[in-house]
Amino acid sequence: MSAVLVVNSGSSSFKYQLIELDDETTLASGLVERIGEAVGQTRHRNHLTGAESSNDSQSIADHAAGFEAMMAAFAAQGPSFEEHPPTAVGHRVVHGGVDFDRATLVTDEVEKAIDRLSALAPLHNPANLQGIRAAKEAFADVPHVAVFDTAFHQTLAPAAYTYAIDAELAEKHHVRRFGFHGTSHKYVSEKTAEFLGRPLAELKIIVLHLGNGASAAAIDGGRSIETSMGMTPLEGLVMGTRSGDIDPAAVFHLHREAGLDFDELETLLNKGSGLLGLTGSGDMRDVQDSASRGDAVSEWALAVYRHRIRHYVGAYVAQLGGLDAVVFTAGVGENNALLRRRTLAGLEFLGIRVDDDRNELASRDARRISPEGAPVEVLVVPTNEELEIARQAAALR
């Protein structure tokens, strides 16, 4: 048996999965949240038996206490760590900067680097590091591996990652495109090649990771050559609460004319924009439901959302110099047939077509939604970032 524990840690919560890599099945999953509050919460599911548990009555002081709560849930509901001992712990880390272009064993020096890179991801890296340190206390005798969201995009060429500002200033303060969702883009592009029965090295793929956070990536022969997120996850597509692309001068304008300070502007663009800013709801399901009932504001917001995706699809066809597949993934991409159809409508001149019957068919499996014989394959490929993290962690244990 070869189990890997995967941890995705936030500032006041962490999610986990125990994955058996021999057959790539999830043995258990759960969530510990409201860490540091008066009352914490835990959720745990044993996938082998279907047993589930929850505890909303305990105080969870910090991430170390959170791991104790997780261990208690495993002891109570299973599966047993004695029968399925983790041989490694894989940690999602959002920002690896230019330091990390692949998964890395966690050492004291790696922890220091993750801490230093918190300047580029102040909402994420400190929380990721808290999870790493707490997990190392709970699982002191197994290797811990950091898997970075940015690593897959380290293959971007300088022309793709460079912003046209003062070069010395940019280098000193690490102002460049890094890209995110790399673990998902890597997993989905490899599954696409597997589904098509073709070598990844010969495929030109556009992956559209559409969830509450959203990004596009152009992948040529398994290498990321372009991606929509930039120095932070704010750039690019319209998202649930993030603006995506915006003229930087709009920030200065709102500072001068609306009196917003820079903390308020950062909050506005990250947490009060996107679909939320346009409609009052950051949930695509709510927005589409309102649009289906004739709400003009919601329909307008969806048009903005689709327009931005099409903008990137066209640009990435040019950068790739051709196209073999467009692939939808993540919560919105995998489950929203109407959005897929309307987003790609009118791109037939690029060989991109959607078969309505195939597109409407709900499934949790990878599937083709383009007609037979279409020049460009259009696919829906469910992502599995946790499995990808587990694979990369196992390779370094």
Score class of each variant (00 low, 15 high):
Ala296Thr: 11
Ala296Cys: 14
Val297Ala: 08
Val297His: 06
Trp300Glu: 15
Trp300Gln: 14
Trp300His: 15
Ala301Leu: 06
Leu302Gly: 01
Leu302Ala: 06
Leu302Asp: 06
Ala303Trp: 13
Tyr305Gly: 06
Arg306Asn: 04
His307Phe: 07
His307Cys: 03
His307Trp: 11
Arg308Asp: 00
Ile309Trp: 03
Ile309Met: 15
Ile309Cys: 00
Arg310Pro: 00
His311Met: 04
His311Ala: 11
His311Thr: 07
Tyr312Lys: 06
Tyr312Gln: 00
Tyr312Ile: 03
Tyr312Val: 12
Val313Arg: 05
Val313His: 01
Val313Ala: 03
Val313Pro: 00
Val313Met: 05
Val313Tyr: 00
Val313Leu: 13
Ala315Asp: 08
Val317Asn: 00
Val317Thr: 09
Leu320Ser: 10
Leu320His: 10
Leu323Val: 04
Leu323Arg: 14
Leu323Cys: 03
Leu323Gln: 05
Leu323Pro: 04
Asp324Met: 15
Ala325His: 06
Ala325Ile: 11
Ala325Phe: 04
Ala325Asp: 10
Val326Arg: 05
Val327Phe: 10
Phe328Ser: 06
Phe328Arg: 04
Phe328Trp: 12
Phe328Tyr: 14
Ala330Pro: 01
Gly331Ile: 08
Val332Asn: 02
Val332Lys: 01
Val332Pro: 02
Gly333Ser: 10
Gly333Phe: 01
Gly333Trp: 03
Glu334Lys: 11
Glu334His: 12
Asn335Met: 07
Asn336His: 14
Asn336Met: 13
Ala337Asp: 11
Ala337Asn: 09
Ala337Thr: 05
Leu338Glu: 13
Leu339Lys: 08
Leu339Trp: 05
Leu339Gln: 10
Leu339Met: 13
Arg340Leu: 07
Arg341Glu: 09
Arg341Asn: 08
Arg341His: 14
Thr343His: 00
Thr343Ser: 07
Thr343Glu: 03
Thr343Trp: 03
Leu344Phe: 06
Gly346Leu: 12
Gly346Asn: 12
Leu347Thr: 06
Leu347Ala: 09
Glu348Trp: 08
Glu348Gln: 11
Glu348Cys: 02
Glu348Gly: 08
Phe349His: 11
Phe349Pro: 02
Phe349Arg: 12
Phe349Ile: 10
Phe349Asn: 01
Leu350Thr: 07
Leu350Asn: 05
Gly351Phe: 07
Ile352Tyr: 04
Ile352Trp: 05
Ile352Asn: 04
Arg353Asn: 11
Val354Leu: 05
Asp355Met: 08
Asp357Gly: 09
Arg358His: 11
Asn359Ser: 09
Glu360Leu: 14
Leu361Pro: 00
Leu361Phe: 14
Ala362Gln: 14
Ala362Ser: 12
Ala362Thr: 10
Ser363Tyr: 12
Ser363Trp: 14
Arg364His: 15
Asp365Ile: 07
Asp365His: 13
Ala366His: 05
Ala366Ser: 15
Arg367Cys: 09
Arg367Trp: 06
Arg367Ser: 09
Arg368Asp: 12
Arg368Lys: 12
Arg368Pro: 02
Arg368Gly: 01
Ile369Thr: 02
Ser370Lys: 04
Ser370Ala: 04
Ser370His: 07
Pro371Arg: 09
Glu372Trp: 02
Gly373Trp: 09
Gly373His: 12
Ala374Trp: 13
